[in-house]
């Protein structure tokens, strides 16, 4: 079976599973849409925001912000939950017992996150365009497409990197929320970052999400950038993707943490199975 067919196979079933997961549909689809309607309605549609020195209407501010949120919800919030629950339930171990390469499982699941974020983004754009008269042209779509791909890559990599630090399904929500809510607040998803103090801006600039929101804001703002992401944005996103992948290669475990003894044998195994470590890794 060739690589593309194997990834497509995994994608098909992961997507089907996700469609039947109500909790995932709430966080990846319903919540961004609900927030768009609420945020735009709450201050009144005439409400304006200052983003990057430009005054923009509420819908022009929140649509790009919530597309960014949709990316994070699909490729991080939902993915981390899936990885930890399936790891602890032995599902990942069972899949690794079959002759399917790790990269096919990861690529298939990442494609599922991409398709989820894409669907949510287009629903957001459809609502913004039809209900709130946001003008959407093919120019904005280029930036949206690039943000979807780059954002899903960086946050999927970070999901595989952070999943090993969460040892039980019960610990997922506190950890994920602790990361995500502050990240949304400082990265121009819910609030313009223009008025933040310098240290907060520096922090946001060092993290990946703001570089996605900024790129989208530039595309939907008055400057109507054809390609909103700057070279700096691309560099920061690439750096976080590489860091995430490097940590995931070293740390990601396919076995439940309950089967991991004090020596971390399961972890060693995760390294082995992802074929990152030396193939002769006899301890």
């Amino acid at each position: 079976m060739n690589a593309v067919r194997l990834v497509a196979h995994q994608f098909r079933y992961d997507t089907r599973s996700l469609r039947r997961n109500r909790q995932a549909l709430v966080t990846t689809l319903l919540l961004p849409i609900l927030l768009l309607v609420l945020f735009v309605s709450a201050g009144g549609e005439k409400n304006t925001f200052v983003q990057d020195g430009h005054t923009v209407k509420a819908i022009s501010f929140f649509t790009p912000g919530l597309i960014a949120m949709a990316i994070v919800a699909a490729a991080f919030g939902n993915l981390v939950v899936d990885l930890v629950v399936q790891r602890e339930g032995g599902v990942l171990k069972r899949r690794r017992a079959a002759p399917v390469p790790a990269w096919a499982l990861i690529a298939g699941r990442t494609a599922t996150a991409l398709s989820t974020a894409t669907v949510t983004s287009f629903v957001l754009l459809a609502i913004a365009g039809n209900r709130y008269d946001l003008k959407v042209s093919s120019r904005e779509l280029v930036t949206v497409a690039a943000s979807l791909v780059l954002g899903v890559l960086v946050f999927s990599a970070l999901s595989y990197a952070i999943a090993p630090t969460i040892r039980s399904a019960a610990a997922i929500q506190p950890i994920v929320q602790l990361v995500l809510l502050p990240l949304y607040l400082i990265s121009g998803v819910f609030l313009p970052s223009s008025k933040n103090p310098g240290w907060l801006n520096d922090l946001a600039a060092a993290l990946p999400l703001e570089h996605i929101t900024n790129g989208l804001h530039r595309a939907f703002g008055p400057e109507h950038a054809t390609f909103g992401l700057t070279a700096t944005d691309l560099l920061v996103l690439a750096a976080w993707t590489i860091v995430g992948l490097a940590v995931a290669m070293r740390r990601f475990a396919w076995l439940p943490s309950s089967s991991t003894t004090a020596s971390g044998a399961g972890r060693t195994l995760g390294e082995r199975l992802i074929r990152a470590a030396r193939p002769d890794g006899q301890t």
Binding site: H9, R16, S17, G90, R94, R95, A97, P99
Partner: peptide, 26 residues
């Protein structure tokens, strides 16, 4: 391999779960 403890693959029917694993083999 039948593991000692493992949850079913979430969100899949019995047939779909078996088809998913069938796709892993040549």
């Amino acid at each position: 391999i039948v593991l000692q403890e493992s949850q079913p693959d979430p969100g899949l029917t019995v047939r779909e779960a078996v088809s998913l694993y069938a796709g892993y083999y040549d």
